[in-house]
Amino acid sequence: MNAIISAPGQQQGQPPGASGDTLPLLEVHQLSHLHAPGKGCENVSFELYPGEVMGVVGESGSGKTTLLHTLAGNLPPQSGYIHYRDRQGDVLNLQSLSEGEQMRLLRTDWGFIHQNPRDGLRLRASAGANIGERLMAQGERHFGRLREAGRKWLDAVEIPLSRIDDQPRTFSGGMQQRLQIARNLVSEPRLLFMDEPTGGLDVSVQARLLDLLRRLVVSLDLSVIIVTHDLAVARLLADRLMVMKEGQVVESGLTDQILDDPQHPYTQLLVSSVLTP
C-alpha cells in the first residue's frame, strides 16, 4: 500500500523511546468539502497531537459538522489531505486507504459520537450487543468475554448492569448517549470525533455527560475533535478551539484565550452573545 507516507524510523530528530507527544496524531492540510460556495468547509489545516482535545465552534451552517464528517471519512475531501499516525507510528494518507482499511480504522482506532444517539446505536439490539459489536467485528468469538466487556463499559458510563439485555430504545436520551460512548470506547480508540454530544439533552443530564467525558478523555488519554455550538461545553472539554464561519476557520488557539480574549469580530460576537446565569 502506498498509503504509508513514512515509517517511524524515517522521522528525524526524534529520540528513540520518546513519547509520541512531539509528533502529531493527525495532520490536516487545506482540507475542503463544499456543498455550495460558503457551505461546507474550505482550506482547513491543523495538527492534532496525542491527548489533545480540540473544539470546533461556530453557528449552525458554519461548516463545522461537514468538517467533522470529512475528517472522519464519512464525506470525501474535495481537496487537501488528512494524514494519520497509527499505533505503529506509520503515517497513513486517509484518501489512499482502501474502503475496507478505512472502515477498520474508523471502527478500531477511531470513534464517532453522533449528536443523535439513534444514528450511532442499534436501537433494537441490546445494550450488551451494542457494546460488543466492535469487538465481534474484530473477531472476538467468546461470549463470556463479550459479556465482561459489556459490563465493564456499562459501569464505566454509569449505566446499571441490570440494563445489559435491554434495548436502548427503552433508555432515556442521556443514557442512550452514554451507551453510544461505551460502544465506541470498547475498542480502545485513540481518536474520537464528537458531534454536539450534549445537544438535545436536559441541562442536568448534560452536566453528568460532560463530567463523564472529561474523566474518560483524561483517563484513556484520548485525542478528541468535538464540534459544538455551546461555548460552555467547549470551555469544559477542549484544550484548544477552532472558530468557523461560512466554511472558513477564522480563529484558532488555546480555549481560554479564545474565549477570554477573542480577536476576530465573529468570535467576539459569539462570545458576547453567550448568556451567563
Binding site: 439490539a125 441490546s126 450488551g128 450487543a129 468469538r141 463479550l146 439485555d165
Partner: peptide
C-alpha cells in the same frame, strides 16, 4: 455474531 449474541443473552 451480534444476532447469535442476542440469542444467547436472551
Amino acid at each position: 455474531h451480534l444476532k447469535l449474541y442476542e440469542d444467547i443473552a436472551r
